[in-house]
């Protein structure tokens, strides 16, 4: 499968008045055509900053993309001019955010908000855009969309707003959709409906998806591959089946600790792993998971483990070989 996006060694930091936040510390991943990549990790581990960095949506200052590349359809997103990256945003890469209550503009009508990418990227007239907006809203399951065009976000429920968000993100049929915890703010039943909707849209639009979540249950249902993030690093990376069957990193094991079997449909959130979440303000020395790791030994404090191949396509960043019960050698 050809790659849609290949990210290499992405580093993003925030320089606040008092400290430096090491939000993303050299992240590499790729997404294939029509594939869904899941990204999991506790809150604050750099998932959003990574994705925002790709579209250069992080505030500069305080933020800064220090290094890395993000090759999207043969071109490096991180080295595009502001005008070029704007041509990609909303046209070739769509984005859906976590909280539908705050991610839609409260003073602009639904029609205008959904039509905007069409007017910008497709040069449609207002009338053409309206027809397309009605199509899109129908597609994402908004009842009677013609009657809702002049409505404002506050007249929609949370689930409906998230549908509007995705209609907006898909307006220009992007080849990649980045969904940043799109179901976290929704009720459980609405979550399930939304996931089903995205699966359907994925097939209709033939697009790739990066799906960020807390919810390992959802990942199992939608993604083909998973990257597990901790403290701004990807610590494990495998196909969904492989990750659930053979988790290698102690952090992944912790996350999966209380997860029910795969065939259960109940949705489960990440369990809390004992110990404090990592301090992103300290420059990383050694493995960031050491303070919480039951397997940690001397070497872990000295050197941060690189992602090493476990078996075909499965990588994990840990000095301890969990299967053999001894340091990797």
């Amino acid at each position: 499968m050809p790659e849609v996006l290949a990210v290499k060694d992405l580093v993003t930091k925030f320089y606040t008045d008092t400290e430096t936040v090491h939000a993303v510390n050299g992240v590499s991943f790729h997404v294939d055509e029509a594939e869904t990549l899941g990204v999991v990790g506790e809150s604050g581990c750099g998932k959003s900053v990574s994705m925002h960095s790709l579209l250069r949506l992080i505030p500069i200052p305080p933020g800064r993309i220090e290094s890395g590349q993000a090759i999207f359809q043969g071109r490096d997103l991180l080295r595009m001019s502001p005008g070029e990256i704007r041509q990609v945003r909303g046209a070739q890469i769509g984005m859906v955010f976590q909280d539908p209550m705050t991610s839609l503009n409260p003073v602009i009508t639904i029609e205008k908000q959904v039509a905007e990418p069409l007017l910008i990227h497709r040069g449609m007239t207002n009338a053409e855009a309206r027809t397309r907006v009605v199509e899109l809203l129908t597609h994402v399951g908004i009842p009677c969309p013609e009657k809702r065009l002049a409505d404002y976000p506050h007249q929609f429920s949370g689930g409906m707003r998230q549908r509007v968000m995705i209609a907006m993100a898909l307006a220009c049929s992007p080849s990649l959709l980045i969904a940043d915890e799109p179901t976290t703010a929704l009720d459980v039943t609405i979550q399930a409906q939304f996931v089903e909707l995205v699966k359907k849209l994925r097939d209709d639009f033939q697009m790739s998806i990066i799906w960020i979540t807390h919810d390992l249950g959802v990942i199992a249902g939608i993604a083909q591959r998973v990257a597990v993030m901790y403290a701004g690093f990807i610590v494990e990376h495998a196909t969904v089946k492989e990750l659930y069957a053979n988790p290698q990193h102690p952090y992944t094991r912790g996350l999966l600790g209380s997860l029910p079997r795969l065939d259960e449909t109940r949705s489960v959130r990440l369990v809390n792993i004992k110990g404090l979440p990592p301090d992103m303000c300290q420059p990383p020395v050694g493995c960031p998971f050491v303070p919480r790791c039951p397997y940690a030994f001397d070497h872990c404090k000295a050197e941060n483990p690189p992602l090493a191949s476990v078996n075909n396509g499965h990588t994990s960043a840990c000095w301890w070989d969990i299967d053999l019960g001894k340091p990797r050698g």
Partner: peptide
């Protein structure tokens, strides 16, 4: 967040400020 949404749609910075 809706300001980020506008930018993520490819809205030009001037319109982000003046319209959104």
């Amino acid at each position: 967040e809706y300001v980020t949404t506008a930018r993520a749609k490819g809205v030009a910075e001037n319109d982000v400020i003046n319209k959104h």
